[in-house]
Amino acid sequence: MLALLHTSFVHVPVFDALRDADHPELALRHLVDEELLTRARAEGPDAVASDVESLLMTAVEAGATAVLCTCSTIGGVAEDAAGALGVPVLRVDRPMAAVAASAGRVAVVAALESTLEPTLALIRQEAAGRPVDLRTLLVEGAWERFEAGDHDGYLDAVAAAVDGITGVDVIVLAQASMADAAGRTTNGAPVLSSPRPGLTAAAVRVAKGAADAAR
């Protein structure tokens, strides 16, 4: 079983749909705690580290063999909990960051400022010393639309911001909630989102764990 840690309920149907389309045999358990993001934004991601670990430990005790954190702001904190949990803990945005790190010029787009630095740090980590030209774009007002439940308005605002980006090789949508904005853009550069590759990477780890256990 794969446990998914979310900071918004909107991610639950998104990842259920991806599971149904790509990994129908994968059992999911969704953990949603919106307060984690609220506190991480106000106090920094480290402020929620113990709460994240406790929440994930409960999931592991219930049978989760791997964990996927879908929140970019607290992804690093979740990964750091792996040692205490004894199971793989993955960030949903790491596979996306690995692709971006292979490009020369990367634009990172976010609706939350708290997401930008963790995403930049992750891309630099994946670049492993290779030069990457990173620039950022914070979509002003988009998150307020998201919080108000105006999902179409949120995605349209993100897509409009992406359409204004020039002079890059790839564009990164830093938050999982932005994924559907990729289909609304007219920008010619590749636009990367995290949910599908992140879930695929986690499904591989679950399958590997099951195969190892069966030996």
Results as ranks from 00 to 15, higher is better:
1 M>K: 11
2 L>E: 01
2 L>I: 01
6 H>F: 05
6 H>P: 05
10 V>S: 13
10 V>M: 11
14 V>C: 00
14 V>W: 02
14 V>K: 08
15 F>E: 01
15 F>I: 00
15 F>Q: 04
19 R>I: 03
20 D>C: 02
23 H>Y: 13
24 P>Y: 06
24 P>K: 08
24 P>C: 08
25 E>F: 04
27 A>M: 08
28 L>V: 04
30 H>P: 10
31 L>F: 08
31 L>D: 06
32 V>S: 06
36 L>V: 00
37 L>K: 00
40 A>Y: 00
40 A>N: 03
45 P>W: 04
45 P>R: 05
46 D>H: 09
51 D>Q: 14
53 E>N: 06
53 E>K: 11
54 S>N: 14
55 L>C: 03
56 L>W: 04
57 M>K: 15
58 T>C: 11
62 A>W: 06
65 T>W: 06
65 T>K: 12
68 L>C: 10
68 L>D: 04
68 L>H: 03
71 C>R: 01
72 S>G: 13
72 S>E: 04
73 T>W: 02
74 I>L: 08
75 G>P: 10
75 G>S: 12
77 V>P: 09
79 E>N: 11
82 A>P: 05
82 A>I: 06
83 G>R: 09
83 G>S: 08
83 G>A: 10
84 A>P: 01
86 G>M: 08
86 G>Y: 08
86 G>I: 07
87 V>E: 05
90 L>E: 05
91 R>D: 06
92 V>L: 09
92 V>T: 05
93 D>C: 06
94 R>Y: 07
94 R>F: 02
97 A>I: 03
97 A>D: 04
99 V>N: 00
100 A>H: 02
100 A>D: 05
104 G>H: 09
106 V>G: 09
106 V>H: 09
108 V>H: 04
109 V>H: 03
110 A>L: 15
111 A>C: 14
113 E>M: 05
115 T>Q: 01
117 E>P: 10
118 P>D: 06
118 P>C: 07
121 A>N: 14
123 I>A: 08
124 R>Q: 13
125 Q>P: 04
127 A>C: 10
127 A>H: 07
127 A>L: 10
128 A>C: 12
130 R>N: 15
131 P>Y: 07
132 V>I: 13
133 D>M: 08
134 L>E: 12
134 L>K: 12
135 R>C: 14
137 L>M: 14
138 L>G: 02
140 E>W: 09
142 A>S: 12
143 W>T: 02
148 A>Q: 13
149 G>L: 11
150 D>F: 12
150 D>R: 05
152 D>M: 10
155 L>N: 07
156 D>N: 13
156 D>F: 09
157 A>S: 15
158 V>Q: 01
159 A>K: 01
159 A>N: 10
164 G>H: 10
165 I>D: 05
166 T>V: 15
166 T>S: 15
167 G>V: 07
169 D>I: 06
171 I>T: 08
171 I>G: 09
173 L>T: 03
174 A>Y: 01
174 A>G: 06
175 Q>D: 04
175 Q>S: 01
176 A>H: 01
176 A>V: 07
178 M>E: 06
179 A>V: 05
179 A>E: 12
180 D>K: 12
181 A>K: 00
182 A>F: 01
183 G>R: 11
187 N>T: 14
194 S>W: 04
195 P>H: 02
196 R>S: 14
200 T>L: 06
201 A>N: 03
203 A>Q: 04
204 V>E: 15
207 A>N: 13
208 K>M: 13
210 A>M: 14
212 D>Q: 14
214 A>E: 15
